Simulated scan of single mutants.
Amino acid sequence: MLRRITGALMRGILVAVMIASPSLLLPDYTTDAIEIVALLAIVGAGLTFAEYFANYPSIVEFRDAPPLNRLRFVGLFLMVLVLTLASKNIYEPTAITGFFSGLGQVVGHYSDFPYSPVRLVIGMLPDGISNMVVERVRDAAGVAYAIALTSVVVFIGAVRLYGWPTRNGAFNVWVNLPRFDPTAGGDVVHRLQRDGRINAVLGIALPFLIPTLVRMTSDLIDPITLAHPQTMIWTISAWAFLPASMIMRGIAMMRIAELIEDKRRRASQESEPVHLL
């Protein structure tokens, strides 16, 4: 019990720190913004604590199948923190902020090539925006996308090299997939494979589709300027994190389907009658 409380509390605190990081490190413009961020941090921490403290699952998938959720959180936290420190270099330059700003410029430069996701993000910006904002958005998109790709590669390594999730013991589908109903109809393996492929394909396509859709709808709604640092940080982080999270979810579901299929095959072989000569 004490271990569960400590783990849930630590997770809640980390979520609150991540949500509040841009507001804590960057200059604030209004008092209302501080209050809203504080409220969001408290709500996020409370929901995380309640989810990981409860005995029964609710909405968080793969709760007891590390390191999937840890990789997701670390990836998002790194995106927010790195983009925040790079943005802070504009207002309060230091050695640390200068390092991350320079890192963003290098990554943004090499990831900005024709038809790349970073180039598409730049293309969704409204016409007439300053070159400084364009460069900041390019650098932020390059860093965030690099972190997202790294998270996906690390998870693939955990699956293929370390046999996730079998090293953590038996995989409980009900606890780790609370929104998946095995009795809804159809073969479980086929449904898991289908859902996994859909998530993986959407995750690969979204970094390209989102900027295109934003650009196409710019005549109907106000275009995103991303001139405000905190708006840019959260928008770019969401643009990079959501597709990476969907890809990892798709890989995880296809892996679970593979384990179930292997278990069925072994059970079928063990149940075959032995023919004596």
Rank of each mutant, 00 (worst) to 15 (best):
T166V: 13
R197I: 10
V188M: 03
A238Y: 13
A244N: 05
D222N: 09
A140G: 14
S130Y: 05
I36P: 01
A267W: 03
R266L: 12
D64E: 15
P67G: 02
T30E: 09
M232E: 14
L68A: 03
D181K: 01
A146C: 14
L71I: 14
R138E: 14
S21G: 09
M246L: 14
V188D: 01
W239S: 09
F113G: 07
R266E: 13
A33S: 12
T97W: 00
E61V: 03
Q230I: 15
A184Q: 10
L25D: 03
G75V: 08
T166R: 12
G186C: 08
V121A: 11
F99Y: 11
L277N: 08
D181I: 03
P207F: 07
F241P: 04
I198T: 02
A20W: 13
W239T: 05
R70M: 04
G157Y: 04
W239R: 06
I236C: 13
G104I: 12
A20N: 10
V43M: 08
I236L: 14
I147D: 11
V17E: 09
A184E: 13
S101I: 00
G250T: 08
D112A: 15
A144S: 15
E35S: 09
G108D: 09
Y29H: 10
P114T: 06
N168G: 13
L14W: 07
Q269W: 03
R255G: 05
V143A: 14
E261T: 02
W164G: 00
I59C: 06
I236G: 11
R191N: 04
I224T: 06
R265D: 02
Y162P: 02
G12I: 06
P114R: 06
